[in-house]
Amino acid sequence: MPAVLEGRGVTKVYRMGEVDVHALRGVDFALEAGELVALFGASGSGKSTLLNILGGLDTATSGTVVYRDRRTGATHDLTGARDHDLTRFRRERVGFVFQFYNLVPSLTARENVELVTDIAEAPMRPEEVLALVGLRERLDHFPAQLSGGEQQRVAIARAVAKRPDILLCDEPTGALDFRTGLLVLEMIERVNRELGTATILITHNAPIVAMADRIVTLADGLVESERANEVRKPVSEIRW
């Protein structure tokens, strides 16, 4: 099966204040259609940087990243893409979920989802997608009136409302307690399974990788190891 998203020799050098930081040192990575990949590694290993580059939030210092359109089969090189093209890529193809939810505080749950449905091509209805994550009753609440788990579920709803090809989750349970985290992971698993959205899930929490098809481990900006799970473990059976 061809990869939806593929990176070759991806490197990234940041200038932080007065020092150069080598976040990625030549990473090869592929995400296939419908697949759920866990990106595992310690803090500072380059997971988030890779995710940002794959999602078109950032550009690589060198290497190539190619996106393949599932419907047309056309490929798009993200490496040298202009800001305008990256914006379109994000708008149409990618959904993001962050560790700290990043909801717009002045908008209600429904309106946060509308932010996406306002500009997407063929989105789901906000109410429909919020029902999917179990928030049918909390449509008109502001982020400050929602619990952490609820906020993260709004974020997931917001990410999937556009029917993206790719869902990118950066430590989505990082700020949540175990029970709530489980609920959020179940949502992600469900979206992956029911909508067939290719998903990358960043975590530094080892037990969680069991829910993935494949596990890529990063260390110090390089791929340290890569292995496939014979069977994906249902989220409900995971404990940490």
Partner: peptide
Amino acid sequence: EIAVLKCLGYSS
């Protein structure tokens, strides 16, 4: 918030 909007696909 600006970052989120950019992630969601809003242009600069």
